[in-house]
Nucleic acid binder design. Sequence first.
DNA 1: TATTGCGGTGGAAGCGCTTCCATGTATGGG
DNA 2: CCCATACATGGAAGCGCTTCCACCGCAATA
Lengths: 327, 327
Amino acid sequence: MTGERTATLDDVARAAGVSRATASRVVTGQGPASPRARDRVTAAVAALGYVPDASARALVTRTGTRLAIAVIGHTAAVLDDPYVGRVLTSAAHVAAEREVGVSLHWLPLADPGSLARLADGRGLGGLVVVNPTRPALESVPRTLRGRVAAVGVGARHVPSFDVDNRAGTDGVVRHLARTGRRRIAMVTGPAWLPCCDRAVDAYRRVVRDSGAEPRVVTGDFTAARGAEAATEIMARWPDTDAVFALSDLTALGALDGLHALGVRVPGDVAVAGFDDIAFAGLSRPALTTSTHPVEDIAAAAAQAVLDRRDTSGATFYPSALVVRDSA
Amino acid sequence: MTGERTATLDDVARAAGVSRATASRVVTGQGPASPRARDRVTAAVAALGYVPDASARALVTRTGTRLAIAVIGHTAAVLDDPYVGRVLTSAAHVAAEREVGVSLHWLPLADPGSLARLADGRGLGGLVVVNPTRPALESVPRTLRGRVAAVGVGARHVPSFDVDNRAGTDGVVRHLARTGRRRIAMVTGPAWLPCCDRAVDAYRRVVRDSGAEPRVVTGDFTAARGAEAATEIMARWPDTDAVFALSDLTALGALDGLHALGVRVPGDVAVAGFDDIAFAGLSRPALTTSTHPVEDIAAAAAQAVLDRRDTSGATFYPSALVVRDSA
DNA sequence: TATTGCGGTGGAAGCGCTTCCATGTATGGG
DNA sequence: CCCATACATGGAAGCGCTTCCACCGCAATA
């Protein structure tokens, strides 16, 4: 059983009758090699089932080839949301195309310094931060500068990719106003997420322009909170005729909450969400919402990091209004 | 800017006035070290912001500490399903608790041999295979034997964790029968997924017992396919009075397809799903389904691998009937 | 006082790989 | 026919780390 040792480059070289240097050149495809040597090494690799050791390679090349994805805010809410899964899936897909490994990291919101510790391996070629907060992004070690991107707007010095929720919100709220809604409430996302500010801002602007007062309630992107929030809103402002939630999950929850209250949708109150998740079209009434190209955004972030493109500043992806039955 | 080099163990040793060997002992916590040396090294580590290089460490210890998660069947269907995201999230969570890194891999269905190549780093401490197929599991390199687990039942020699979809299906179909449904159709998952067989088996048994003929249509776990399948079923067997789908997503799609056909649910046709995803309770009518503790299952698989527990054979997690409005 | 034992320590080897550099070995032109 | 040029090759160094081993000084024992 001692022979069970996995083959090393030395074994390959010996089997091929060349030096380790030559074997390395052939395997990596870098540097000159005669056809003859190439063939023999290739054969030996196949025969021995040789697979280069990533650690050893990373150690010498100093070129960590691993994309780290750090998700900030490790709470049940984050786990339930399909959002994170979609980001992961898409980023991992991009990485796989480039034959880059992906590593996942859950960072508690309270301890953003943990992002620093994440540089451990130095083996990582890049970092994508999901749900970025300013302190978290600022704790990213210098070593990685230029190889970091954020999904969701955060600090200034890191290229960020996010949906244009300002324009998206504007579109949804204007649609509500256009269809005769005058007392529109909004359920935001968690307060610590900087990205929500822009949306709330857009909402406020439209509502104020129509001469009404903003009615904002803080949410957390969950359905449960959506039901609660709807109840709160109807209790506090009984004449509310529209609820806009910055998350479809929350909007679906609100739909449920309103249903429980005996409020008809869209008859009495219109409901609109944001994200256009797969289920938005399947609810009754089908949810009016605004698209959120999560996969595109995550892919862009991953690409920016892996290709070392210095797409500085924030890039916003368009969000399109999807009118269904709920508003 | 040349000083920007990250600190190495040598730097720490020099700063602490000890040898590299001693520094290593203190940092790893292995082996003897005087309190004095311990303090000085600790201080130096803090001062220099030293973080051990994972590659170098892995190279010498040969003890890769990384949990690889391989998802088989890299198609759009797999990407859309919240299932994979939930598995990833949960497994990554378990790994994070043990301070183990997680790496993600998408394996095309057609090339299961790619699982072998995954052993590349040898740096991995374990492997969790999602959606396992027999050929894929059999291609797992020997090096990893004993450190592999599957989410979903697959080959015999690898410990597998899955929902008991036999009992779950039995419960759902019996519920349908109990509530007067006599001509029950079923939409399965993709044919290549071995786990579906058990469910189909349970369905067949119950239906046969009631003296009816099975009506099985192959699905792929997507909502789109659910709508299609519902249409197919009603065309082929117009007297169908219940549709059971092995995935909530598909069931929701069926709900939609039936709605488009003008079929009332549950009046004309009852619909039931499987998984009890977050949205199942939010649809109109709310979906009757059976629970699927994905997070528990994924966590168990991750734990089995990381703790080197030899939980051989398949472990099934209970699935509980959730009766809502659609059936 | 001479011996043993032991915890603390540094020297040095080596994990598997890439890459610089010097050394061949064929090729073309003068 | 000889030298310059190119290319192919092997030797050797070294990436940052762990760990074996020999060593040293000290306290406890004979």
